[in-house]
């Protein structure tokens, strides 16, 4: 239908874009991960598996990776625990206020990530809003130190930031459930609770899987929240990568960690898509 030239002109820019900014960097990273750094701080272009060995040998790397996974898992869990009831309320009970409330869920996404992370810093700090309040009502005599610069602070902040990402797909999935199925369930004698567990929840699983994937993948790779609020005990794997590419000047090792992360994330996305397909019925 369209001429060859036309197709070429239309498809060329995105192809060039993807090549320059995605394929080339990945290829470079792939190469770097098999190179090494000499004592003179120059990169030696000789192929070896030294970086991957080091990753497995030094506990600090995989411990940080495990901690990151653990933090991301908690963020996912809390985001779902907060997001599902809200999406459920929006979809089934919000009535005429539905659109307004939906907008209110989206609005926080317009605020810069950095602002939201800093906001938590002013809330959780030792002179912060929360500690001042706790002392004012005499629940504590001195500021609680564990609030800021801890995995707790990171999980809290990331949960706050990524909860909307779980609400939206769950809400969409709930909206797609034909309401006559809910009526059919009650008609057949199911109480509202039974209807929820037997009809609504199973039919909303694709949304839950999508939301969980968003929350997990985004928080697994996060480096700003741990940088600003994590302290030494809240370091995540991306912070390690940042320092390896920066101050430590060990690009090959950083590249190896990045590739490891990439493998994990790609597998997760694969799994997520499989689950969504398994649970969709339209």
């Amino acid at each position: 239908m369209f001429s060859r030239a036309y197709k070429t002109i239309v498809t060329a820019p995105p192809l060039v874009w993807v090549t320059i900014f995605l394929i080339v960097p990945y290829a470079l990273m792939f190469c770097y991960s098999f190179w090494s750094v000499s004592s003179g701080q120059t990169i030696v272009h000789s192929w070896n598996l030294q970086n991957y060995h080091e990753l497995l040998r030094k506990p600090v790397y995989w411990e940080t990776l495990l901690r990151s996974i653990w933090i991301a898992a908690r963020v996912t869990l809390f985001s779902l625990a907060l997001g599902y009831p809200l999406a459920y309320f929006l979809s089934f009970y919000a009535g005429r206020r539905k659109d307004l409330l939906y907008q209110l869920v989206i609005i926080p996404l317009w605020v810069s990530y950095l602002v939201r992370a800093y906001a938590w810093k002013t809330i959780l700090g030792s002179d912060g809003v929360l500690n001042t309040f706790l002392q004012y009502v005499h629940l504590t005599s001195h500021p609680l130190e564990f609030l800021l610069y801890s995995p707790f602070a990171v999980v809290l902040t990331l949960t706050h930031i990524y909860t909307p990402f779980t609400i939206l797909p769950i809400y969409a999935a709930l909206e797609h459930i034909p309401r006559n199925l809910v009526e059919a369930s009650t008609d057949l004698g199911a109480t509202p609770t039974q209807t929820f567990w037997k009809v609504i929840l199973p039919l909303s699983i694709p949304g839950v899987v999508a939301g969980a994937t968003f929350a997990f993948v985004l928080s697994l790779g996060d480096f700003l929240a741990p940088l600003l609020l994590g302290g030494p005990s809240g370091i995540m794997i991306s912070n390690v990568v940042v320092s390896l590419f920066g101050a430590a000047y060990n690009w090959p090792l950083g590249a190896a960690i990045s590739l490891g992360m990439l493998v994990i994330v790609v597998n997760l996305l694969f799994l997520s898509e499989k689950l969504e397909k398994r649970w969709s019925f339209s």
Binding site: P178, N180, L181, E183, A184, S185, D187, L188, G189, A190, T191, Q194, K198, V199, P202, L203, W279, F281, S282
Partner: peptide, 25 residues
């Protein structure tokens, strides 16, 4: 009990599970 205009069968359940629904709940 009601037979709905567009049947309203549960898409995630088999024919047998659909029919058993009322008795199971």
């Amino acid at each position: 009990n009601t037979v709905f205009q567009h049947y309203a069968l549960f898409p995630h359940l088999t024919v047998e599970q659909n029919v058993a629904y009322g008795l199971r709940v």
